[in-house]
Amino acid sequence: MVDISPSLAPPRARRPLGQAVARFRRHRMAMGGLVFLVAMGLIVVFAPFFLPYTYDGQDFNFIGSPGAMSAQHWLGTDELGRDALTRLVYGGRVSLGVGLLGAVISTVLGTAIGAVSGFYRGLVDIVLMRFTDVMLSIPTLPLVLLLSTFFRPSPVLLIGIVGGLIWMGTARLVRAQFLALREREYVEAARALGAGGARLMFRHILPNAVGPISVAATLAVGTSIMMESGLSFLGFGILPPVPTWGNLLNAASAWLGIAPWLAIPPGLCIFCTVLAVNFVGEGLRDALEPRL
């Protein structure tokens, strides 16, 4: 009865995860993006401890109109004499924080709705997917305008709004994954063993959908940073004096002609961060879902 082919050597676990990490590391742009994001994260978290100014501290030498870049104020000051670099770093905290948490909410919401929809199918699926369609067809800006007349925007609320407005793509993706994976034989085998719905979803289907979900989650970070910046730029997001990259850009736009050094850094931060996030997302996709 014992007939083992010699190809099996003694135990040495090589998990699929190890291969994915190796593939990711070979992806140059993704690695570059990851390094950029980690650096940005470290700066935003730790730099304020080394900066001599607070984000709302004013330097009365430069009040009235924007101050130029100098040895004291590397990126200049705004019209109220506040240090631009300090505000940029603090703004990054808010923007990255909202971006990250908004993406978390979007991913959790999208995964939950997509999973239930794809797993149970039928009426549940129809109802949830029509709801998703409705959410997709609501124009974002008018809705946010409306909300901002009722609520005073706070970071927590903004995270909720951002997350609540961008989960639909994830939901559709996860639904498609669940529809396909629920028919796999290993899922059927678990069902034949009497596994319940929750076990099938969380133990058998979800772990096999982690690749696409984490790609979607990464891309959602980019989307929610953009959305936060957009909303803050228009004045419906986080309100001054708390800085975000978006409202810094808004404040700088008034002085664009005479003090472009105020607008360029936050704009560049948003641009580079979103780009880096998308590179990482692309690298993850290639690493987790090798199709070739």
């Binding site: 034989e185 085998a189 034949a192 096999n208």
Partner: peptide
């Protein structure tokens, strides 16, 4: 039950 495709019938994770 025993399935036909041994590559699809075991959860890869």
């Amino acid at each position: 039950i025993i399935f036909q495709d041994p590559y699809a019938s075991l959860n890869p994770r």
